[in-house]
Design a protein around this nucleic acid. Structure first.
Lengths: 193, 193
DNA sequence: ATTCAAATAGTCAATTTTGACTATTTTGAA
DNA sequence: TTCAAAATAGTCAAAATTGACTATTTGAAT
């Protein structure tokens, strides 16, 4: 039983090969350009998966013999690969793939820091989210295929920004209440000896 | 330069050890119970990371000698480990960690299916999201620590559900318009030979 | 004509991850 | 008390992942 991401990556490669026989470089460039928002598939991993799918009989390759230029492998889908594509697509669409937020670990230990420092750090995080949102707004609308994925990523980032803003509001309110009590701002926490 | 998830997992282990010396089993049970919504850290990986952090001088362990019961390692934080905790915490909080949705790969190839089948499959996905939301609503509010992470996961799942509902609405509208044109529902697509 | 950068096409060693496994101790039911 | 299941504590071989590397070809500037 492979991981869900593993299956998704295989699905991506099969889906791209379904458009027609392709060589490895084109696959990797396409993934890095048009799927950069939803796939973290590095080049060596792509070649590894292609080899593995070849063993499963889903893809084959043959060397081309260009009159000029580098010799290279032309990968193509087999009928079994076409079948696998449909199965993986149906599974991918019908399953929910849980998300783990690496950033939530830090939030779990937020109370180890002073509210002031926590707020400053999270504001940096929020700025990065907003920068990413801006970048995606200005991104050229990837024709058809990845459009839904792009819309999803935008929607997600908007939700992330809203949620972080809410957290920051809570923190700021707390800081204000502390200032009221003590009459002066709290110093930043120093790492205990 | 380690991966962000890697750093987050180290941060988690350090943060737990910061509460006091602990043996491996307790760490793993805690992670599986209280951090299951934000960390995908398996037992062998946890032991691997503990060993690696021991090499970095961040943690040490000594065997205990219980009068009865299994002998086991008691892991504890070194001063260097305490220092590393602060560094990793600050980095984790101030950085945004991009998310890759495995489910977006399938969405990119949605047009390979009939709108009818696509709708049915995505409705299954939505049902799973709603089930997970319900489970999290009824989850016992993990005391303090992971509360923010839980809130985040809830917020995220609500956004996911809303977005999928929007996609499904678009699909359904499209299906209706097709029915208007043809006067009868489209048959489910058959996998091409 | 030469040279330097970029595009093309992958490979490999080292690291990371995990499913499956071993082994002992405690608990609780019959 | 006896036996089985669950809790406890970790290990290991196999698989997956990737940073860094090699090597050739093309394009463009000089």
């Amino acid at each position: 039983m492979p991981l869900p991401e593993d299956e998704a990556n295989e699905l991506l490669l099969l889906g791209l090969l379904r458009r027609g026989p392709t060589h490895g470089y084109a696959l990797n460039v396409l993934i890095a350009h048009d799927w950069d928002t939803c796939a973290a598939l590095k080049k060596p991993t792509a070649y590894y998966l292609l080899k593995r799918m070849a063993q499963k009989g889903w893809v084959t390759w043959n060397k081309d013999h260009p009159a000029r230029g580098l010799q290279r492998r032309i990968y193509r889908l087999t009928p079994e690969g076409e079948h696998a594509f449909w199965q993986l697509l149906r599974k991918n669409l019908s399953d929910y793939h849980p998300i783990y937020f690496a950033g939530d670990i830090g939030l779990s230990f937020l109370d180890a820091l002073s509210p002031h420092e926590a707020r400053d750090l999270l504001q940096k995080r929020l700025a990065q989210i907003q920068a990413r949102r801006l970048a995606l707004e200005n991104a050229p609308a990837h024709a058809g295929a990845a459009a839904l994925a792009l819309e999803h990523q935008r929607y997600h980032l908007a939700a992330e920004a809203h949620w972080l803003e809410h957290v920051l509001e809570t923190l700021t309110t707390y800081i204000s209440s502390q200032e009221d009590i003590h009459g002066y701002p709290q110093p930043d926490s120093i790492e205990p000896a």
